[in-house]
């Protein structure tokens, strides 16, 4: 049995059906998010991955099964606000999750809701904005920012609440490549330096490839899981699930199909370079 002190989130036989929906959007999922882990949940649209994320934050309550967030059962009404403080959530559309008309006021929003003292709010805002490199935008209006900057403000708002887990529900889907890089670099840094567990929901393979562990959802169930290397090596299975593999993994797959002896679990350009070097010297 998974112990709560080693795991930030534990889901056990978790199911959720939307009201009036015939079938479960999430269907019997058992999984966990370890302390300090960077987890990616992949899946095509409608695979249940976003629903799963919302179960981790007590935005949805399980139809069946249980989710514990830092040992707290999300079905318990009295724990809802504790849970949301432990597991912060960043959403998809940068325009639809910023509440206030000034950046720092927005970062303060969650703290104000939780009745934190104004002096303490000030300190935490400054820390959070510094952690996402947005200090100099503290007094700006959100609509003047780029998409990546808006998402970093949203991350700061979550960070100010000192969470144990940050869940990014397709938070890079609407960004351009530089915005995506900004967000990914930020959460990776928070993961490494602050030890905050990160769950990213995404359909960008490049992002999933940087995670410690990958879960692929399909039809509400876990279809595949493992390290990025283990998962992406199964090129055909991943494709059948409506997803891509990183281009270099795809290239390795094609080369192997042509009878060349390259590793199947190549993920990056550098790894492919090494493989080519090995090929040219070994024969």
């Amino acid at each position: 049995m998974a112990k709560p002190e080693e795991n930030r989130i534990i889901a056990s036989s978790l199911s959720y059906a939307y009201p009036d929906a015939g079938k479960n959007a999430v269907d019997g999922v058992t999984m966990r998010v370890r302390n300090g882990e960077f987890l990616a949940i992949l899946g095509h649209n409608g695979s249940g991955k976003s629903t799963l994320a919302k179960l981790f934050n007590a935005l949805y309550v399980p139809t069946n099964g249980t989710v514990w967030v830092c040992g707290l059962d999300t079905r318990d009404d009295d724990l809802v606000f504790d849970i949301r403080q432990h597991a912060g959530m960043v959403f998809q559309n940068p325009d639809n999750q910023i509440v206030a008309t000034v950046v720092e006021e927005d970062v303060a929003f969650g703290l104000e809701n939780n009745g934190v003292e104004p002096k303490e709010i000030r300190v935490r805002i400054d820390e959070a904005l510094a952690a996402v490199n947005m200090t100099k935008y503290a007094k700006k209006a959100p609509h003047m920012l780029s998409g990546g900057q808006k998402q970093r403000v949203a991350i700061a708002g979550v960070l100010a609440m000192k969470p144990d887990v940050i869940i990014l529900d397709e938070s890079t889907a609407m960004l351009d490549p530089s915005g995506r890089a900004e967000v990914m670099n930020t959460v990776h840094r928070l993961n490494k330096e602050e030890g905050i567990s990160v769950v990213i929901i995404t359909h960008y393979m490049g992002e999933a490839a940087t995670a410690d562990y990958v879960i692929v959802m399909d039809e509400g169930k876990i279809a595949l899981s493992g390290t990025p290397r283990e998962v992406f090596t199964k090129v055909d299975t991943v494709r059948a699930l409506g997803l891509d593999v990183p281009p270099m993994t795809d290239l390795a797959h094609m080369l192997r199909a042509d009878g060349l002896d390259v590793r199947a679990d190549v993920l990056t350009v550098d790894e492919m370079v090494e493989e080519v070097c090995r090929l040219s010297s070994s024969i």
């Binding site: 934050n57 303060a108 709010i121």
Partner: peptide, 27 residues
């Protein structure tokens, strides 16, 4: 409407529960 829906969920996720016991950044 879609934005309102999204925003409501985002506010909930950030522990919004009305004006009671709420503090403010600026006094």
């Amino acid at each position: 409407f879609r934005r309102a829906n999204d925003l409501a969920m985002a506010m909930e996720a950030r522990c919004y529960r009305g004006g009671d016991h709420r503090t403010r950044l600026r006094e």
